[in-house]
């Protein structure tokens, strides 16, 4: 395996871990704490780095578990997209920047209201550009499950976007 060091291999994962933690905790300060804990945990395991297939998948898994713990402790429960009231459809003038921003945040709202596993999978696929295999490894589920969750998430988003524009 290539020469692995904390500075050159582990630390560059920080932002990626932060985005995942942020998608789960929905809080920047908590997400930063999660990343710090994750990196320290990875550092403690440094004697085993050579035996780990993907240090990134390893770190992402730790990060997700830590973030879920933090969220659980905080007692927050994100409302599932299925349970929320349907957003009032409105006519958008897409040429207006203000309304465009509103719609932008509305789309973010839809994404944030997805169940955690769907949200995490969507982030890993769409934003971090991970393959189904890498996502399955990180979340410790099968590739088929990854595709099923992702399909559900995208379908919900598509339906929501369709609803607000008709």
């Amino acid at each position: 395996m290539e020469n692995i060091s904390f500075r050159t291999t582990v630390l560059p994962l920080s932002d990626r871990l932060f985005r995942l933690a942020l998608r789960i905790t929905m809080n920047r300060a908590e997400a930063e704490d999660v990343v710090q804990d994750t990196l320290l945990k990875v550092w403690e395991q440094r004697n085993e780095w050579e035996q780990i297939d993907s240090l990134e998948a390893f770190a992402l898994t730790i990060c997700r578990n830590r973030a879920l713990d933090v969220k659980k402790r905080a007692g927050r429960n994100n409302t599932s997209l299925d349970k929320i009231d349907s957003v009032q459809p409105s006519i958008f003038n897409l040429q207006s920047s203000i309304e465009e921003r509103e719609q932008l945040s509305l789309v973010r709202k839809f994404m944030d209201e997805l169940p955690e596993v769907q949200r995490s999978i969507m982030l890993l696929r769409d934003i971090e550009g991970k393959t189904y295999q890498e996502i399955a490894q990180t979340l410790d589920i099968s590739e088929t499950q990854v595709k099923v969750y992702l399909h559900r998430a995208r379908t919900k988003i598509k339906e929501r976007i369709w609803t607000i524009n008709t």
Partner: peptide
């Protein structure tokens, strides 16, 4: 659908 992809771009730019 443009808003959705732009939103994902914005999420990708989140940094520590």
């Amino acid at each position: 659908y443009r808003q959705f992809f732009l939103e994902e771009d914005e999420m990708a730019s989140e940094r520590l």
